[in-house]
Design a protein around this nucleic acid. Structure first.
Lengths: 338, 338
DNA sequence: CTGAAAGCGCTTACAG
DNA sequence: CTGAAAGCGCTTACAG
């Protein structure tokens, strides 16, 4: 249907090879032929067929980005960054949603989809280190988040233990002593929950507070309704908490909703902290204190690592710890009327 | 690098054509050869090279989805649906972010990127009806939102005038008489702003209220900070509003933040409505009354229309009006403590 | 029911 | 500096 190089070559009166050389800015082409080919290209409105080029190169030019759900703000914000960085380097990004289901994650990593992609950035929820370790290195993969184990594949994440510890220590620093945690998961394999719980416990112990198991509430997933429900559970306790560390902002926003709807004053009666720094938390009332991962750095590093692998790098799996910082807002620091 | 059909054919002792026939479930293949080829496929772990297949077919198997920004909840939720629907029909989706910039939108619609895609679903902010009308129908395009004009290209949107009218009428029905509007845009071409403003005015006039130009606040974009700033402007008015219709939920959430931070009671002193029904508004305090477009229907219709065009349909441009409904929550109905 | 050949549009050694 | 040919992996008329 479209205009091919052959058409351009014919119009310019040169061979296909020469036309190709001009398109690819090859050095040794005389100025005369170059301009002749250029004008033929303009006249015909020629645009290279990327599919053919990719077949020739044995590459697709496509990077996969596999996320649990695109409508979770943290992942949407991350996807935005990844697409921007990739595009800047002339790569396109195909997004797949896994819903955190193991079968879907497996399909993307080693199924037929894998053949289409030159590389994959995946934030796995179900698949564990053992799976990636056993994987033949057919397709370059970069792992995002806490599910990965060192030595398995390239991996980008923040220091989650430290992040959780910072958040919890901040609450303790406010004078709170009954600090709850929302986000624990019953599944033993859940990476994020495990490391953030560890940081939470560490902060309590460092302050000489004995962790109260009744204050650690498990959830099914990390969405607002889960946080709201967990908070209802905590409020119903005979001895409710005076602070809550939520393992992500969505849980925190759900918990916040329950607190306000129940007439509990935040942060006076219960202070609350999340993780992710999604935009919602900057405009809730009260605004949400949170631990902000450096999303731009994460996206940048993930794409860079992946591109290096695609380029042929065979060094051992690398680990990049991205930066994070606590952002104190009204949900722990008190309300500021403007 | 990978295993090709040729390898499969050789191992099975048949021609490439026969192997291809088996892969594509062609009818006339003897059971014996079929099983022989099947086992060769299993043994070699063969997976078809989609790039080659696409070159052969003159198609890429890729649908483009061009949105202003992926981290705007409405677009993230829409993208989630579009990807899900497309995948179900065995198509992949490439997301591009335009930032609402005309040059980027143009690039996607008619630039080199267009050659890679079999079709494009675009939510244009800058490009107007005249542009799409002049477009040669090289690549099938489906337009999302209000920027499109009938007859230009396939188009999916809600009835925005009615939606805005419903929202405004609801506020008037509460007894409010000074109803402000946040979301007007100075650019004369801004589609969404125009139609929603029309619905707003229509509702006022229907109730016998003279529109007060001072209550119509223009914004630069439709993000939370814009809503927050516009609301500050309204509160500073000598005669501030007792209700606000915001042209989307993000503006409403920003405005809500300003109201609460200023100590204004919502909805007692100022009631507020948005459009989009993003999840944030279901968990804010107060929860946000909004007009919910049927996102699933929009995604479904957009993909279906596009696929029909790709399939060769040449009927005149179609217009699909997706459903919408008002969802009343606390920001207009009063707070419900649980 | 199966095979040999051509061709999708491109690039890359190989000659000249 | 430029051309003719081969080949990336696939499918589709065309024969047999």
């Amino acid at each position: 249907m479209g205009v091919s190089l052959k058409d351009v070559a014919k119009l310019a009166g040169v061979s296909v090879k020469t036309a190709s050389n001009v398109v690819n800015d090859y050095r040794h082409v005389s100025e005369a032929t170059r301009t002749r080919v250029r004008s033929a290209i303009d006249e015909l409105g020629y645009q290279p067929n990327l599919t053919a080029r990719h077949l020739r190169y044995g590459r697709s030019g496509l990077l996969g980005l596999a996320l649990p759900e695109l409508d979770v703000p943290y992942f949407a914000e991350l996807a935005k960054e990844v697409i921007a960085v990739a595009e800047q380097r002339s790569w396109s990004v195909l997004i797949d949603q896994t819903d955190g289901r193991g079968d879907r994650e497996r399909l993307l990593v080693s199924g037929s989809r894998a053949r289409t992609l030159d590389g994959l950035i995946i934030s796995p929820l179900a698949l564990g280190a053992d799976y990636f370790a056993a994987l033949r290195a057919d397709m370059p993969v970069v792992l995002l988040g806490e599910k990965a184990a060192p030595g398995t594949a390239d991996h980008v994440a923040i220091d989650n233990v430290a992040a959780a510890e910072d958040a919890t220590a901040h609450l303790i620093g406010l004078g709170r002593r009954r600090v709850a945690a929302i986000g624990h998961q019953r599944e033993p394999s859940a990476g994020t929950a495990e490391v953030r719980l560890r940081g939470y416990r560490r902060a309590l112990l460092a302050a000489g507070i004995r962790p109260d198991p009744a204050l650690v509430v498990p959830v099914d997933s990390y969405h607002r309704p889960d946080g709201a429900e967990a908070m209802r559970h905590l409020l119903a306790l005979p001895n409710p908490p005076d602070a809550v560390f939520c393992f992500n902002d969505l849980l925190a926003l759900g918990a916040l909703r329950t607190l306000l709807a129940s007439g509990v004053r935040v942060p006076e009666e219960v202070a609350i902290v999340g993780v992710d720094d999604v935009e919602d938390g900057r405009f809730s009332t009260p605004t949400l204190t949170t631990v902000a991962p450096d999303k731009a750095q994460i996206a940048q590093a993930a794409v860079s690592m992946l591109l290096e692998r695609i380029g042929g790098s065979r060094c051992r799996p690398r680990e990049l710890i991205a930066g994070h910082r606590l952002i104190v807002r009204e949900s722990t620091a008190g309300r500021t009327l403007e």
